[in-house]
Design a protein around this nucleic acid. Structure first.
Length: 280
DNA sequence: CGTGGCTCCTGGCGGC
DNA sequence: TGCCGCCAGGAGCCAC
């Protein structure tokens, strides 16, 4: 699938890299579904043990070899792949992606785990910066519980959303990005959500009224659904989105004002000073 | 409870 | 050109 190959190419040419937040992982999930199900795993190469979490290379090989991927699931930024009796869990850090290929020349450049199927195709887990993690779980629920992940950002309804945010003392952007509160939103989708909601990223949660929260919840889910429809390809996003303008000298796609770039909880936040005016 | 700082990594880029 | 420090979209840990 050229799409994934394109990620590296896009990043090299200065376009926006597709980062593994919820929509990207959903794309990896459907990609896995459409390429890798119901094929016997012949062998597994662990090229870097750095990405293994609570499992050794030989344990992972034993865990996967002679198994088949039966189905997939996703929770937040985690991809789950079902085997006969347990689950493989993939997290992509800041630079991870999957590539299904046959010709060795098509192997991506920073393959950390290579799964070889008996049909002679391969699934590569490529993670340049080695910040992603591969692990296993008894079930999706067991993993969610073990990692204390909040509800998935796409599934959470408003009453639940409101309940988890109410009473928080901190700022809205870090709250949205906190995987223990809501799973799936990272730095760029929190920027987009707050841009579309007209909320300054440093706004204290307790300063937001019911209408604000309702709007944030609605925009968050609309954005995630749109991004998934566009296969997380930012070049296909609506022209009113801030994501493609999150760069030095970027301008607001709605009014042309130069975007502000600030640090919020240690992360880079871009926002429009004209559109995101709630007091902090 | 929240936040800032540090850490895990690699690689692209800007500045000198 | 070469080198170096800075920066990046994730997230855990610890001190305050």
């Amino acid at each position: 699938m050229k799409f994934f190959k394109g990620q590296g190419i896009l990043s090299l040419t200065g376009f926006h890299i597709l980062m593994p937040e919820l929509p990207d992982v959903e794309q990896f999930r459907t990609y896995t579904e459409s390429t890798s199900l119901h094929q016997k795993i012949k062998s597994v190469e662990v090229r870097s043990e750095d990405v293994l979490e609570e499992i050794s290379a030989s344990e992972l090989r034993n865990f996967l070899e002679d198994e088949e991927f039966e189905s997939t699931d996703r929770h937040g930024k985690y991809l789950f792949v079902k085997l006969s009796n347990s689950w493989l869990v993939m997290h992509f850090g800041m630079s991870g992606f999957l590539e299904y290929f046959k010709d060795p020349d098509d192997e991506p450049p920073h393959t950390r785990i290579l799964i070889k199927f008996t049909n002679n195709f391969n699934l590569a887990y490529d993670c340049t910066r080695k910040l992603g993690r591969i692990s296993t779980a008894e079930s999706v629920q067991e993993y969610i519980k073990r990692k204390s992940l909040g509800p998935d950002a796409l599934n959470i309804d408003y009453s639940q959303f409101k309940k988890i945010l109410e009473g928080r003392r901190g700022m809205i952007k870090p709250a949205l990005m906190n995987q223990h509160i809501i799973a799936g939103i990272g730095n760029i989708y929190s920027d987009e959500t707050l841009f579309q909601s007209g909320i300054h990223p440093k706004t204290k949660v307790k300063k937001l009224d019911n209408e604000h929260l309702k709007n944030i919840h609605k925009k968050m889910q609309e954005i995630l659904e749109t991004a998934i429809k566009k296969q997380a390809n930012t070049t296909q996003f609506p022209s009113t989105y801030i994501i493609p303008h999150r760069e030095k000298g970027g301008k607001c796609p709605k009014c042309g004002t130069k975007l502000n770039k600030i640090k919020v909880s240690g992360r880079t936040a871009y926002y429009c000073p004209e559109h995101q005016t709630t007091s902090t």
